[in-house]
Design a binder for these strands. Structure first.
Length: 456
RNA sequence: GGCGCGGUAGCAAAGUGGUAAUGCAGUGGACUGCAACUCCGCCAUCGUCGGUUCGAUUCCGACCCGCGCCUCCA
């Protein structure tokens, strides 16, 4: 029973060895709350939620922090656009984010720190960096001097010169070195700001994570996750800030990064206008369908996303819930020797774990008595680690699909009518009722016990 | 220019030095009054060209194609 994780730092899979098995620490970069989130934002949340569940099955205490960035130029711009108060806007979207994440059956992280509630900690960290000679003040800005850190670039595998060679952003004149980044920047009177030793201002983009990790999780943490695009500069800069503030002490032992999502074969981007917002998708699909899709590919792979995929994922879940239909609820049991559990231990191989769900479900279906109950418990244990199959099966099949809006009462009334037609040997009439229901998105299934139905 | 990733059946997606999981779709059969569900079966030689090897989809090299990052970005 050993967890193996792919560490971006070493570019290889490594056996996970916690700093303290009694307290696992994991941090994942959360959203900047200036808008609703899209499916790409949901991927790390689902992936690392699954890792959180897995870690909780292995260790007694897992501290998982996922932040809310509620101060940022994007938020300020958006607030100006909408003529809305900045804090009201960020709180509104933070709540929307929590709703979306809950709909995807993500557990609440142990800690949800807000950037604006950690300004003193951030200022304190900047002070230390200035005192230690890793940062300097220029025109009201405090900048991190990347040349003061020999290891800068270790995560992304770039040298300073390489980075500057391809830089496509104009270098601010006050920077001592083009690669230096902002820790603290001045705020104009109309902009939000906090008093600091360098005047009224606000934190730079990278600072908050370092400060909040230090406060809530410690100077060195086990796992840090996020999207691949955050490797540089965000995570590189977090390393620089934290290591230099802590006199070179390691910051994160295992860096995990999830891949991107393509929509209908193209990158999801603002310019293509093909963002898939989570709440829009939730209008048409159960959150579990989105979650199933997100876990059907390995987290480090680029993933294809399309309407067809959502539809087929829904049918895939129908198959699993179909096996569970008629089974009494049971207590989930995690079988630590099972292929599914081992797959998850192997760098979170959720596609293989999902395939094991089918194997277990079919085995359960074929079994009886205690063996059947045991298989059901194992199935639910594995599904639970991935946050799947948590709904009542009967309820699952009543979930509205597409534009079908026939009521449960009407469905049952028609089923009764068909039953009578069958008793009268009026098969044409019975078939007509069944076809009418099918046209309304309701599928009938006859069995010895009678007729059951599902929307599909 | 620098760094990195990927190309597996209609779609999606694992995986392995010894002829390729799983799901959806399709298809043949059983079951059924007919269906649906379920069950049994079928459905790929892994981008191209070389090399290493008894043997490569899996290792190495070249090439083609697609993609990401290089201080907004999951």
């Amino acid at each position: 029973m050993s967890l193996v994780l792919y560490n971006t730092l070493s570019r290889s899979k490594q056996l996970f060895t916690p700093i303290d098995p009694q307290r696992i620490t994991m941090y994942v970069c959360g959203p900047t709350v200036y808008n609703r989130v899209h499916i790409g934002n949901a991927r790390p949340a689902v992936v690392f939620d699954t890792l959180f569940r897995l870690l909780q099955s292995l260790y007694p205490n897992v501290q998982y922090a996922r932040n809310i960035t509620d101060i940022d130029d994007k938020i300020m711009n958006r607030a100006a656009e909408l003529d809305e108060d900045i804090s009201a806007l960020s709180e509104r979207y933070a709540q929307a984010y929590f709703e979306d994440m809950a709909a995807l059956n993500n557990l609440e992280p142990s800690i949800v720190p807000y950037a604006t509630q950690h300004i003193p900690e951030m200022i304190n960290m900047v002070k230390r960096l200035v005192d230690k000679g890793h940062a300097y003040v220029a025109e009201g800005n405090v900048l991190f001097a990347v040349q003061s850190m020999p290891d800068y670039g270790v995560l992304s595998g770039r040298s300073l010169d390489d980075m500057l060679a391809g830089a496509r952003v104009e270098v601010a004149s006050y920077k001592q070195y083009a690669g230096d980044f902002v820790l603290w920047k001045p705020s104009a009177d109309h902009e939000p700001g906090w008093d600091s030793p360098w005047g009224r201002g606000r934190p730079g983009w990278h600072l908050e994570c370092s400060a909040m990790i230090e406060k809530h999780l410690g100077e060195t943490i086990d796992i840090h996750g996020g999207g691949q695009d955050l490797i540089f500069p965000h995570h590189e800069n977090e390393i620089a800030q934290s290591c230099c503030a802590h006199d070179g002490k390691p910051f994160t032992n295992y860096w995990l990064h999830n891949g991107f999502i393509n929509v209908e074969g193209e990158k999801m981007s603002k310019s293509l206008g093909n963002f898939r917002m989570v709440n829009d998708l939730l209008d048409q699909y159960p959150g579990e369908v989105l979650r199933y899709v997100l876990l059907s590919a390995h987290y480090r792979s680029e993933q294809q996303f399309s309407k067809d995929l959502l539809d087929s994922a829904w049918r895939s879940l129908d198959t699993l819930y179909g096996f569970l239909r008629g089974q009494s609820p049971c207590n989930a049991v995690i079988n630590r020797d099972s292929a599914g559990f081992k797959a998850l231990l192997d760098d979170l191989n959720s596609p293989v774990a999902i395939s094991e769900l089918y194997r277990l479900a079919k085995q359960m279906h074929a079994a009886s008595g205690e063996a059947k109950d045991a298989l059901q418990a194992e199935l639910m244990g594995l599904a639970g680690l991935m946050g799947l199959l948590h709904q009542d099966p009967e309820h699952w099949f009543t979930l509205a699909r597409g534009d079908s809006d026939i009521s449960v009462e009407d469905i049952e009334r028609l089923i009764a009518k068909r039953k009578q037609a069958k008793l009268d040997k009026d098969y044409a009439g019975a078939d007509q009722v069944r076809q009418d229901l099918l046209d309304l998105g309701v599928v009938l299934e006859d069995s010895r016990e009678g007729t059951s139905w599902r929307r599909g």
